[in-house]
Design a protein around this nucleic acid. Sequence first.
DNA 1: AAAATATTTGACCATTTGGTCAGGTTATAA
DNA 2: TTATAACCTGACCAAATGGTCAAATATTTT
Lengths: 219, 219
Amino acid sequence: MGNVMVAAKARSSSRSKEKIREENELIILIAAEKVFAKHGLKGATTKQIADMAILPKSNIHYYFHTKLNLYRYVLESILVDWMKAADTFDTFDEPREAIRYYVGAKMDLSRTRPFGSKVWANEIISGAPVMEEILSSRLKKWVDTCVNSINTWIELKKIVNVGDAHTLLYMIWATTQHYADFEYQVKILNNGKRLTDAEFEEKKQQVIDLVLRSVGLNP
Amino acid sequence: MGNVMVAAKARSSSRSKEKIREENELIILIAAEKVFAKHGLKGATTKQIADMAILPKSNIHYYFHTKLNLYRYVLESILVDWMKAADTFDTFDEPREAIRYYVGAKMDLSRTRPFGSKVWANEIISGAPVMEEILSSRLKKWVDTCVNSINTWIELKKIVNVGDAHTLLYMIWATTQHYADFEYQVKILNNGKRLTDAEFEEKKQQVIDLVLRSVGLNP
DNA sequence: AAAATATTTGACCATTTGGTCAGGTTATAA
DNA sequence: TTATAACCTGACCAAATGGTCAAATATTTT
């Protein structure tokens, strides 16, 4: 028993201030992502976030000061992940491969980080009051390059002329994010059972094939 | 001046109790749909709804008793509209026409009733706590018939084998509803300008064509 | 016309909520 | 070892919120 105490003490002592901050911020961010996903910015309470993080409420305020501030951090963190996945769009010359990888990556993100997607969806649905600036600067810029890629493919007759490249992009976003944002509906319509990993891989392939055919490519 | 008073009095007197109830309930439902769309069930306040309806808060409680009850009515009302539009799916034998009309109808609903779509999205994102029963009964049943139609088309080689019919259905839902749920993002990425009616018709055609090609049909 | 029924609304209340703060503990620098 | 800075948290508070209610007004029925 004394050993346990000593070990606990030692472990506790070895946590540097830096590590403590790092760990707690992460714990809070993960908890906040879940709570914001379920209740939105206004609906989420700092108490819920604190309970989810198994920390006293004051601790949340100590690290992030205000709820709005914490919300911003959550959204920023999601955007970083999304942008990373989005890079694959440029790394392939052939639209078949580019689309295959991009859609695949977006599906994977919907599977691995569904709460982030939901927070984002919530933010946009409620009028993007917090992210408007970032949308019209960072995201707009990225979308423009994406649109350029697609238009080049169209000019080179590598894919069908879809009219406005945005329409294709939105279809990809909407379809892939559906599996995160509407996962409860998907679950209910799958006889109440969450998709297994194997099932999800199937759907991913099907989505990829749908998108490829939609631009005139044979999967 | 006396005439105006008399006219006002007469008009006021002529409103029957029945009409009063009908009108006020509609006013409140429309206001509530907007507020719930922006803030979700928990985030929306009865005060906001009252202000949007230009009525005292007590009046909202008089007609709908609780906020949750009002929320239920809003969701029910949306589902009715959606089901109506969805009927077109069965009225055509040829998939080309069926898909064309269904996707078109869903796009039109996204344009004409974006707030309803947002409330629905919010409800699903937050785990469908209120609509779960209706989802697993009414919606499930409708989806099953839809899936049957699609599978028949596949068996008859009228469309490509998409694997799971749900995947196609979800793509249609997600893509069409994107123009309602994510309209602020669409606006921002359209250089801050909301899509005009003409532009929206263009996008609608493009979406229809994308979906048709995705199942191997030439638009 | 008067009784009965339905609508309207300001005042009110218990509860919840975001946020503060003082006083304590723990780690680190001197 | 001691001083300093960072971390921790229970207690607290002002504001907001969902909902109630009684009294006033308007319509309908008898």
